[in-house]
């Protein structure tokens, strides 16, 4: 019935697909952290109009399906004259999405810190930058780590949607092979297994970092 040996000759192709899945996801997470940081600053800043803009941004990317966002980036951008290679467009779409979530994670991390800790820092003469680096960021990173691990796992899984717009990552590769070999179950099962493997490793890495930071 099932014949998993049919998958074996195609494993290298699947692994190449997995590599581009990881490339897309991890780039989106890293870039999303940078943009998320900016959004967090906007959300917590003094300028009312900027707070509004950031809040609308976050609501949009949290409240619409990722597939809609992907398609907008893929088809709407070229329509206004910006054409990106598929891979770059995929990273851009996932980055914009992840930034909304990471911005929220960061904001709640910063707001959890008691104000008194910052007043003590200021009173003792620390500059705002020193307070940020030595008092706020270490604690925010630690408190956001579980949420960041979840977000990374989400992005790895959600990156499968990118296959819909012609990026040859893991999902797309599995689809192609499934239809040429007529063995959809085997290929999708193996693809699922590879996703599971990667997300499990991500979860493990997250827990390890958490325990490291707790004792540090």
């Amino acid at each position: 019935m099932f014949d998993f040996t049919a998958v074996i000759p195609h494993l290298p192709q699947l692994l190449v697909g997995l590599a581009s899945t990881l490339l897309v996801s991890l780039s989106a997470i890293a870039l999303g952290l940078v943009l998320g940081w900016a959004i967090c600053l906007g959300l917590t800043g003094h300028r009312a109009w900027l707070r509004r803009v950031c809040a609308v941004y976050v609501s949009f990317f949290r409240g619409t399906p990722l597939l809609v966002q992907l398609i907008l980036v893929f088809y709407a951008l070229p329509a206004v004259g910006i054409s990106l290679p598929p891979l770059a467009a995929a990273v851009l779409a996932l980055t914009l999405n992840s930034a909304a979530f990471q911005g929220e994670i960061l904001r709640s991390g910063f707001q959890m810190l008691p104000k008194g800790q910052l007043e003590a820092a200021r009173d003792l003469g620390l500059s705002p930058l020193q307070t940020l680096l030595h008092v706020q960021i270490p604690q925010v990173l630690r408190s956001m780590l579980p949420a960041l691990t979840n977000e990374t796992i989400d992005i790895i899984k959600n990156s499968a949607l990118v296959s819909a717009v012609a990026v040859h990552e893991l999902m797309r590769t599995a689809q192609t092979l499934a239809s040429t070999t007529y063995r959809p179950i085997e290929f999708f099962a193996v693809a699922g297994l590879l996703y599971l493997l990667v997300t499990l490793c991500t979860g493990r890495l997250g827990s390890w970092l958490e325990s490291r930071l707790r004792t540090a």
Partner: peptide, 12 residues
Amino acid sequence: CMVFQQFNLWPH
């Protein structure tokens, strides 16, 4: 220097 009711040490 100020000493606060809530101590305000840095817990990390």
